[in-house]
Write a protein that binds this DNA or RNA. Structure first.
Lengths: 259, 259
DNA sequence: GAGTGGTCTAGACCACTGA
DNA sequence: CAGTGGTCTAGACCACTCG
């Protein structure tokens, strides 16, 4: 045992990266178990004849990855794998379909100027119903199959006519920036499940009471003021979200991997 | 304008943290716009009479937060806010209910030893149906209202009797560690939407064809071998996921906030 | 008090960019 | 070529933990 693994100081791969991978490997192979302490920073620095700052940089990588945690005055310890913090990336929703080789197309159902009703006044924090909003309805399809129905609203401050360019970037963010001078800087999405209404079923070409994902998105500007809102539904039989957590093996066996 | 904001070198708050917040503030107030370059690291170091390494530490915070990106040989630039990478943390599912003040309770519907059928053999990558599995069915309730129905499986290697302690940690991870000597180190969750079957509706006390979240979780050990699997359904009218992205204001006005 | 991690310095050399 | 960020060093002092 204890075959001293080594660091190549002359490699193009940074020392901190080599050391981080070495420590990660020891943890993934069970040589360092959850709760056990890593060697102290000074010990590691002496053993590999590198600077303590470089050791700290390596350990910082592991801390970010959630594999170890440091306690001032005590030491650095292997963390038990966190399994309760799975995150679902919403990218997948349309991205995975593209990766699957299908072409997505967006069809415009309608673009209207509307005045704010009570619900929209609340969402956009308006105190007057005279504010004009752009109401934009689209359907996302893949290979002639309709997958999602999206209803988007944005404050319509420009007096320009509605631009056809809206369809080039049919995201809510694109719609907002195309029709306003504000820069959306943050977003909030709420995911719920529901079943189709008669109208939604007809638009998607599926049955009534079919299960769907519902996503409400709100875009905010620098002042934290809502500048865009959308409610979209996605066919439940065509979409799913996948998430991971814990000590993930990114499996960097072979291949070039620069930090 | 250009009122020189300052750094207190004698503060208990680290210099890198003060500088990071200062730069972040300039970005959030629009003084530095997306695409614009930050002052060079040397410039910042000279202006505040601090070490370049400390400047780099501050900028590293902003890079992690996704607000800036560095390009070797060119400079460090303000990034446009990323709005397409919303992540939903599954914590919320039961956590928010607790935060709301309700008490969650888990009721055991049944705990059986079963042999692997074809589906379970595939899930657990087994080549023999003689492997014994523990099948664990529970219902999660809040204030006498049933919210979720969970079906969990784990390889049952110990010859111990089924422990009552399983109910103390009713998570899949807890079930696996209580009945095996393996340590689950990573997890995969797939989220889908569906509607209740007659059996599920009866167990949850709601109608048939009601919308529900379906979450299938697989737990893996160090060798990437499945050691636990569960399929759970959550009432669609009681659960939702919320996610954020972009330049988030964590709003640290007042209050103690140590980096 | 000895030992730990947390911060900070003032340099050094490198890789990359663009004129 | 000058200027940028990327890595690394060999120290220093501090805050914290625990005996």
């Amino acid at each position: 045992m204890n075959e001293e693994q080594s660091i190549d100081k002359n490699s193009v791969i940074p020392i901190y990266y080599q050391l981080a991978k070495l420590l990660e490997s020891q943890i993934l192979h069970g040589e360092l178990k959850p709760g056990e302490a890593l060697p102290t920073e000074t010990e590691i620095a002496n053993r590999f004849e590198i600077s303590r700052m470089t050791v700290r940089r390596a350990i910082a990588e592991l801390i970010t990855a959630g594999m170890v945690h440091a306690q001032q005055g005590k030491g650095t310890f292997v963390s038990p794998p966190k399994l309760n913090n799975v995150v679902f990336e919403l990218n997948n929703f349309n991205q995975e379909i593209k990766d699957f080789g299908l072409k997505l197309s967006t069809t415009l159902l309608g673009a209207h100027i509307v005045r704010a009703d009570e619900r929209l006044m609340r969402i956009f924090q308006l105190d007057s119903s005279t504010t004009r909003l752009l109401y934009f309805r689209t359907v996302v399809s893949a290979e002639d199959e309709r997958l999602a129905y999206e209803r988007k609203y944005t404050i319509y401050s420009k007096s320009k006519p509605i631009l056809e360019s809206n369809l080039q970037d049919p995201t809510l963010s694109g719609l907002v920036t195309a029709n306003n001078d504000v820069l959306p800087v943050s977003t909030k999405k709420v995911l719920q499940v529901s079943v189709t209404t008669a109208e939604e079923a007809a638009i998607l070409g599926i049955g009534v009471n079919a299960p769907v994902f519902v996503i409400e998105e709100t875009l905010y500007d620098l002042e934290n003021k809502p500048v865009g809102w959308s409610k979209s539904i996605y066919r439940g039989d065509r979409y799913q979200l996948t998430g991971y957590d814990g000590w993930l093996r990114k499996d960097n066996h072979g291949g070039i991997n620069l930090g």
